[in-house]
């Protein structure tokens, strides 16, 4: 057991997913004196709003005729600041274990543990994970010769490396792994790169010097056996097929959303969505709730505003779950001095 796993953080609620709905849940739970930890696979709050459309306007948030994904995220962060939520970014929830006292121990993929009385799944379309490039047969080489991220640079030492992509990940790893690799080929569809111009210039200088190769084209097939890659077939922009020798491949094809480990928690699912009721947004497991795009119920609309509504009702149900005997007095933030004190206004 590592040191990390010995220390267990404790909180009232763990929220899985720090998208708009997860963030607003902090507010609704906070008004009921429940403290939250949030876990998200991205490195910042906002979920799809931050990752997919930070600059794109959203037109159906009540009272905001037009707001960008990033603008919405920033305002939610401001709104929940009084409740001091604790964020765990770059983490995926690996498991949720029910304890004898009805509480849960949530474990992340970095083996951190958080004890909570309630778990709220606000995971949207699932967790963002590297996209598998559409190359036939690539599965056979995954985790032996084909990697979608660099966990340990040692893995690439002395290898003939083929890095595919034109964004920052592809360019950064090209530059970082070049000193330890035997050879590096960067493969990109076209001679225009999304990556920072500075990295692109550095890469082009290295190609000029003959320290690495740049190949324009798309991978159409892989050759090798027993999980060991030997070469990749590359279709160039002229339509020729060339063979690029390589012993390790790092494809960077963006992110896609997958339900991930949530599928294994014994929750009732309906086409990869978590089934809930519309009174409490509770799952079939007492103490686990699901709100936002990840849940399903008759009439469900995948709208941010629906998620906000679900967060409010879920918060009251969660409070009842935690303190069944406490009478919850329904209050408005406009008139309740108690709520205003919590908000620091």
């Amino acid at each position: 057991m590592s040191d990390k796993s010995n220390s267990i953080a404790e909180t009232d609620v763990v929220i899985i997913g720090a998208g708009p709905v997860g963030l607003f849940a902090v507010f609704e739970l906070g008004l009921l004196d429940l403290k939250c930890h949030l876990i998200d696979i991205l490195d910042r709050p906002g979920g799809q709003c931050a990752e997919l459309y930070p600059e794109k306007p959203i037109y159906d948030i009540p009272a905001w005729p037009e707001i960008s994904g990033q603008g919405l995220t920033d305002r939610l962060m401001e709104q929940i600041a009084p409740f001091d939520p604790v964020f765990h970014f770059n983490r995926m929830v690996a498991g949720v274990e029910k304890q004898d006292d009805g509480s849960f121990i949530v474990t992340t993929d970095e083996d951190e543990k958080i004890k909570a009385k309630v778990v709220v799944i606000a995971a949207g379309g699932g967790s963002f994970q590297p996209k598998r490039p559409p190359v036939p047969g690539i599965e056979a080489f995954e985790d032996t010769s084909v990697f979608y991220s660099v966990r340990r640079t040692e893995e690439f030492k002395g290898h003939d490396l083929l890095i595919i992509g034109g964004g920052d990940s592809a360019l950064d790893w090209t530059l970082n792994l070049l000193p330890i690799a035997n050879s590096v080929t960067l493969l990109h569809r076209r001679d225009a790169f999304r990556a920072a111009p500075d990295s692109v210039n550095k890469m082009k200088a290295l190609v000029e010097k003959g320290d690495m190769s740049l190949q324009l084209g798309q991978v159409t097939g892989l050759n090798g056996s027993d999980g060991q890659i030997e070469s990749a077939n590359v279709k160039t922009s002229d339509g020729d097929i060339v063979d690029v020798k390589c012993t390790r491949i790092l494809p960077f094809f963006g992110l896609t959303m997958k339900l991930g480990p949530i599928a294994d928690w014994g929750l009732n699912l309906n086409e990869n969505l978590v089934s809930v009721d519309t009174e409490k947004f509770a799952t079939n497991e007492p103490g686990i709730f699901a709100i936002g795009d990840i849940n399903t119920y008759p009439g469900k609309l995948k709208l941010i505003l629906s998620g906000f509504h679900e967060a409010a009702l879920m918060a009251h149900a969660a409070k009842k779950h935690i303190d069944p005997d406490e009478r919850i007095v329904f209050q408005y933030t406009t008139s309740s001095t108690k709520l205003q004190k919590k908000l620091g206004v």
Partner: peptide, 11 residues
Amino acid sequence: EEDMLDFAYDV
């Protein structure tokens, strides 16, 4: 759109 097409198959 060109940037996104980088992620498509057989462009």
